[in-house]
């Protein structure tokens, strides 16, 4: 690379040109991280991409054709989106009013925040176990409903709803904390200024805070969506892994570790990445239409 040329101060012209572009030996500090990304992320990624076009039998597109022609496989895209999109949306939308209430300081705020953080550390596996116990037949929730007279409780785990709940439990705190930090980044004097100009509570929120928060909401939605989209253990543990919650991750895993068809597995992984990037791309495109400058807050 051009970096080594820097050691030859004999050519002042070259040194001056490199200085103008900001190239010098300090950039070598970046080298381990770049190597790392290339070796452990880009190389496997392209290896997988190549693998997906090199199936054991058939033409280069055989794996993709196999995926899309089999509705049991291709249906996983829709199943995954049907889980991830509503869950991410609910997590973001529910967080906004709660975070809005919790701006500023009040007694017990830190405790409440910590309580809301706990589920992040539970992880999907414990959440699944808890949901099984809590929402399952004869669990506390069932008994509670029975006690207030609702005997005929619908099944809440080992189906779509079990996975959905686990996505809300792990995803909501995540979305909430992000939005809380975005909200605290908005200078509160902006709302006070709007108040002095005659805006009432609703107008202040809709015309000042929300537009400033919107880019943050888009980012939060993306990150929450990524989390929900890659759902895997809970789809098995509290879902219906053979049917209504057979998500993309599961299909990819089964192709690789149960059928040992690495080409199909890679193809599914690539499709999964593509679908996710499309959703994120659409959201980020919409976000780029918004005002994304300073929000007047500190930091």
């Amino acid at each position: 690379m051009t970096l080594t040329a820097e050691r030859a101060p004999a050519d002042p012209g070259l040194r001056h040109r490199l200085a103008e572009r900001g190239v010098d030996r300090q950039l070598l500090l970046l080298l381990p991280a770049v190597l790392f990304v290339v070796l452990l992320f880009l190389y496997p990624f392209f290896y997988g991409l190549q693998l997906s076009f090199a199936p054991a039998q058939g033409g280069p597109f055989a794996s993709y054709i196999a995926f899309f022609s089999d509705s049991y496989q291709s249906g996983t895209i829709w199943i995954t989106l049907k889980l991830a999109l509503p869950a991410a949306l609910l997590n973001v939308l529910a967080s906004v009013p709660i975070a809005y209430r919790m701006r500023g300081n009040f007694r017990g705020k830190r405790l409440l925040t910590i309580l809301l953080v706990v589920p992040i550390t539970l992880g999907t596996v414990l959440t699944a176990q808890g949901l099984r116990n809590f929402l399952g037949p004869n669990g506390w929730f069932d008994r509670l409903l029975g006690a207030i007279g609702i005997a005929d409780m619908p099944q809440l785990v080992q189906n779509y709803w079990g996975v959905f709940f686990s996505l809300v439990i792990t995803g909501f705190p995540f979305a909430f904390l992000l939005i809380l930090s975005y909200l605290s980044g908005i200078d509160p004097t902006l709302e006070r200024a709007a108040a002095t100009l005659g805006a009432d509570w609703k107008q202040r929120f809709l015309r000042i805070t929300l537009p400033l928060l919107a880019p943050g909401l888009a980012t939060t939605f993306c990150l929450t969506f990524v989390l929900a989209f890659s759902v895997f253990p809970s789809a098995v543990l509290v879902g219906d892994p053979a049917g209504s919650t057979r998500v993309l991750s599961l299909a990819a895993y089964q192709a690789a570790y149960e059928k040992f068809d690495y080409s199909l597995a890679s193809a599914i992984a690539m499709i999964m990445g593509a679908v996710e990037l499309i959703v994120i791309g659409v959201v980020l495109l919409a976000r780029s239409q918004l005002y994304t400058g300073t929000t007047g807050g500190k930091g």
Partner: peptide
């Protein structure tokens, strides 16, 4: 390039990575 591994679902890069 540094952002991608965080944005991608772990399974997407995990399966090719595990294969490698």
């Amino acid at each position: 390039a540094f952002l991608l591994p965080i944005l991608m679902p772990p399974i997407t890069y995990g399966i090719p990575l595990a294969t490698v």
